[in-house]
């Protein structure tokens, strides 16, 4: 294991392996590589692993494997982080930007000295890397945004953000799978269900994916909403 890694006990049933403290693509790729290596090791007593921006939390059964031995096992893993962020799937989602679907688009554009069309063009030009899923089932945290689209969270959180809302803050983009309160700036909305328990794999996205957002009109949004998932999105599997 590389230097600088910290083994932080999260009580007696979880271990957080911390690679660093910031939002950084290289840190996150180390997290993903450790998760893959640990899953391949298939240790008795490891229940599940949760990758985040900069750490991997390992949930385990202390009556099967204790903290000291788990740290030792993780430390002994030999793995190398991929250098290529484009090694995950590429998922393309339609988004209706602005208007009723993205009431904060104007503010976000103005903060970056752009008009709305320019803000849409820049937001939809980049591949949004999924650092992690958290906060709610299927809720992706994606980065990184160009400087002109980077701004803090809203001063006052909205009390209700509609499901499917695409929102930006702190250099990142999220998509809310469920209606909820939220402090991010709502710039658009996708008609795609990011989480649907009726699907074999309910969460559409997973950490390590890259997401491309395809601007659509409000009319196209309405039309796409009625269509099955296979007609709403495209998924390109990584080359192996």
């Amino acid at each position: 294991m590389a230097g600088g890694v910290r083994y932080l006990p999260s009580g007696d049933c979880a271990l957080t392996v911390e690679f660093g403290r910031g939002v950084d693509r290289h840190l996150n790729m180390q997290v993903m590589a450790l998760e893959a290596a640990l899953q391949a090791r298939n240790l008795d007593g490891v229940i599940e692993t949760v990758p985040t921006f900069r750490s991997l939390t390992v949930h385990y059964d202390p009556s099967v494997i204790d903290h000291a031995r788990l740290c030792h096992e993780v430390d002994a893993l030999d793995f190398a982080a991929s250098q290529d962020a484009a090694c995950g799937r590429i998922v393309t989602l339609p988004v209706a930007y602005g208007g009723v679907h993205g009431p904060d688009l104007g503010d976000v554009a103005a903060a970056g000295g752009l008009n709305e069309e320019e803000a849409i063009a820049r937001h939809s030009a980049v591949a949004h890397y999924v650092y992690m899923i958290g906060f709610a089932p299927g809720h992706p945290y994606m980065g990184d945004l160009p400087a002109e689209l980077t701004l803090p969270r809203r001063m006052t959180p909205r009390t209700r953000i509609a499901p499917g809302t695409v929102a930006v803050a702190v250099g990142q983009t999220v998509i809310y799978p469920f209606a909820s309160p939220g402090g991010w700036h709502a710039i658009g909305r996708t008609p795609v269900d990011l989480f649907n328990i009726a699907r074999d794999v309910p969460a559409l996205l997973r950490a390590g994916d890259s997401v491309r957002l395809r601007p659509v009109t409000a009319d196209e949004y309405d039309d796409l909403q009625a269509r099955p998932l296979t007609e709403q999105i495209t998924i390109a599997e990584p080359a192996r």
Binding site: S10, G11, C13, A14, T16, E18, R21, G22, V23, V50, T52, F53, R54, S55, L56, T57, H59, M132, G134, F135, Y141
Partner: peptide, 9 residues
């Protein structure tokens, strides 16, 4: 920066 949560945290 968000990280994982254990029950009891």
């Amino acid at each position: 920066t968000s990280d994982g949560i254990a029950t009891g945290a």
